[in-house]
Design a protein around this nucleic acid. Structure first.
Lengths: 233, 233
DNA sequence: AAATAAATTTAGACAAATCTAAAATATTCC
DNA sequence: GGAATATTTTAGATTTGTCTAAATTTATTT
C-alpha cells in the first residue's frame, strides 16, 4: 500500500463518510465537509483518479474505487484506535478525542497501529460506538437503527451516537445514557416527535427528536424489515 | 506558543542537536543532518530568523534563540515520550522507536502530551537514556561521560547510548549491557584502545573502542574534573 | 424549451518547501 | 598575500495544495 499525503487522506476519508449516506458524492459536499473550495476539490479528484483511488467523470460526482475504500478503511482504523486510546488510556473525554485523532490518524506506520490495536485489546468500537476496522480492513456491519425509528416497546441497546460534541455529551451524561444502555420507547408524542423512554427500572423520561435522531441502537428482538420502497434505482 | 510546520520543526530540532556539540551550527551541517541541500537550509534559516527562533547573519552560522530553544525542547519532549511509550507499552525494540517517533513528535497537542506523560508515569529518560524535558521545558543535565573517558577502577552506571541502530542493540544484548548496568574498567589496551570491563561478579570481557565511544556512564564516585584547556574563546 | 440558477470545472495566481546552477563570500595553502 | 578551494547565498524553477474569477455544464422554472 502506497503512502498518501495528509491532504489526500482527508479527501479520501471525507468521500468515504459522505458515500455512506447517499450514492455518488458531489464536489460541493466534499468542499463543505473539508471547509475548502469546490475548485480545490476538483483538482484533488483529478489526482485521486489518476492514482485509481476513485471513479470520476467530470460533472458526475465520485465514488471510491475498491482500492480507495481500502485506503479509507485504513485511515478510519487509525482514527478510531487512537480515539479509543485517548479515551481509555489517557482519560480524554468523549468530545475531545476526535480532534486529536484527526492528527494522529495520519501517522501511517502499520506496525505502530497493529501493536496499538493489540495493546488496547483489539477493541471493536471506538468511544462513540463506531466499529473499528481490523488489520485486514474488515469492518463490522451492525444492525443499528436510529432510535427515532425503533418501534415502541422494543428493548434495544444504545450502540452509537452520531454527534461527537461536548453539548450532546453533557446531555447524555445528565440523562445517564451511555453506550450499552438498555432502553425502550414507551410512547411517542406527535406534537414534537419527542419520545418517552424507559431505562431499566428507573422512572421514564422524555428525550427530544433531535437527541433521538443522533442515538443509534441495536434491537434485542428481530425487527420486521420495514420496506422503504424502491432501493436506489 | 505558536505552531510550526513539520519542516520547520525538523530544522529546529536538527540545530538544537548540532548545537550541543560545538558552537554555532553551519549550513552544511544542517543540510547533511536533514539530507537536504545547503540552499534549502539558507531559505529556511531566513524564515526562522524572521520568526525569531534563531540568530543568524549570512555566512556566520546560526544559534537558536531562547524562544527557539523552548520550541526545540517541546519537540524533543514529544519525541522522547513517544519513544518511551513505544518501547514500554507497545513493546517496540530499541532500534525501532526512533523512526516512528519522528512522525508522532509533530502532533503538537499540549494536552495530549501532558496526559501521555502522566499515563507513562512521568518517565525521566527515553529508551536510549536521554532525558525527557518536563512540561515546562526543564531538562535534566546529568554528569554523563563517555565510557572511553572513564578512569580505570571507577564504578559507573550505564546511562545512555548515543547510537540507536539495531546493530549496536544486537551487540549490547549479546554482552548483556543495558541502561543501569553497573560496570568498571579494569584495563585499557593501547594497541586498539579496547577496554577490559567488569560487570558485577561476571568474568571480565573486552569491548572495542567504537563501542566504548557510544556508551555514556555516570560515575558512582565524584571524578576530578579534567581541564580541557580554554573553553569557547 | 428558453431563461435563469446552481454546480462544476478551467485558467491563472500564490505560498511553502524543495531543487539546480551560478554568484558571492570565507577559508586554506603555498 | 593572493590563488585555489570550500562554503554559503542568490536566482530562478518545480511540486503540492490552495485560492479567485471566469467559463462551462447541468438542473430548475416558468
Amino acid at each position: 500500500m502506497l503512502n498518501f499525503s495528509t491532504s489526500e487522506e482527508n479527501y479520501i476519508k471525507a468521500i468515504f463518510h459522505l458515500q455512506q449516506d447517499v450514492g455518488p458524492v458531489t464536489t460541493n459536499e466534499v468542499a463543505h465537509e473539508l471547509k475548502t473550495r469546490p475548485a480545490s476539490v476538483t483538482d484533488m479528484m483529478k489526482k485521486l483518479k489518476i492514482k485509481k483511488l476513485l471513479h470520476y467523470q467530470p460533472y458526475q460526482g465520485f465514488r471510491l474505487s475498491s482500492e480507495g475504500t481500502k485506503v479509507a478503511l485504513g485511515i478510519i482504523r487509525r482514527h478510531r484506535l487512537w480515539e479509543f486510546f485517548l479515551a481509555e488510556k489517557l482519560k480524554f473525554t468523549w468530545d475531545e478525542v476526535h480532534e486529536v485523532a484527526e492528527d494522529l490518524e495520519h501517522v501511517s506506520n502499520k506496525k505502530l497501529i497493529d501493536k496499538l490495536d493489540e495493546f488496547l485489546g483489539f477493541p471493536r468500537v471506538d468511544p462513540h460506538g463506531d466499529p473499528i476496522p481490523d488489520m485486514h480492513g474488515k469492518i463490522e456491519i451492525s444492525n443499528k437503527i436510529c432510535l427515532s425509528k425503533l418501534p415502541n416497546h422494543t428493548p434495544a441497546l444504545v450502540s452509537s451516537v452520531s454527534d461527537h460534541s461536548s453539548e450532546i455529551l453533557e446531555l447524555l451524561e445528565h440523562k445517564k445514557i451511555s453506550l450499552g444502555s438498555k432502553l425502550e420507547i414507551k410512547r411517542r408524542f406527535e406534537f414534537d416527535n419527542s419520545l418517552e423512554i424507559r431505562m431499566g427500572r428507573q422512572p421514564a423520561f422524555t428525550i427530544s427528536q433531535q437527541l433521538a435522531e443522533t442515538i443509534f441502537v441495536t434491537s434485542l428482538l428481530p425487527l420486521i424489515q420495514i420496506s422503504e420502497g424502491k432501493r436506489n434505482k
